[in-house]
């Protein structure tokens, strides 16, 4: 287990500006002792991937309430691959119909949090994902 603070990059993808949820999550994760980098509004998928790489993120969290997740998530995953940071676990929150979750998981989304998810559950999942990745890195010897 790593001794330094878990670093999370949070992003809203697309044009939607409803950022109450992601700003609440940012505070929750910060209050849980994590380091949070919030990209602000309207970043491109490539921009999010670049920030995640440069900030050495342990987890990327995306908020989407616009219904555009099936278009924008594949673009983000592609961009992460192009930047060589597709090993960073990606989590998603917002208005995501249950029916879309299996396909999102197959694409490579590690977790999907719907409306009303308890704060504790998000903190736990982010911590687990960061620790799993860290122990995997130790085994493979990558940085």
């Amino acid at each position: 287990m790593r001794q330094y603070r878990i670093r999370v990059v949070l992003a809203k993808l697309g044009l939607d500006g409803h950022d109450r949820g992601i700003r609440v999550v940012a505070r929750i994760l910060r209050d849980a002792g994590m380091e949070v980098i919030y990209t602000g509004l309207w970043p491109t998928p490539g921009g999010v991937a670049r920030i995640a790489l440069e900030e050495d993120a342990d987890v990327i969290g995306v908020s989407l309430l616009s219904g555009a997740h099936m278009t924008l998530l594949p673009k983000l995953l592609e961009a992460m691959k192009a930047e060589g940071c597709d090993d960073i676990p990606l989590i998603l929150g917002g208005s995501i119909p249950d029916d879309d979750v299996p396909q999102l998981n197959r694409m490579g989304v590690a977790a999907v949090f719907g409306p009303g998810t308890p704060a504790q559950e998000i903190i736990q999942r982010v911590t687990d994902l960061a620790q799993t990745r860290a122990s995997h890195e130790e085994h493979t010897g990558s940085t």
Binding site: G14, L15, D16, W42, T44, S66, G67, A68, M70, T71, L72, K75
Partner: peptide, 22 residues
């Protein structure tokens, strides 16, 4: 929809995935 609200045309690259959705 979101592109119209943000003053973007439907064929703007930033509109991808959001045309006619909300």
């Amino acid at each position: 929809d979101m592109p119209t609200l943000m003053g973007l045309d439907s064929d703007d690259p930033r509109s991808a995935g959001e045309v006619g959705r909300l």
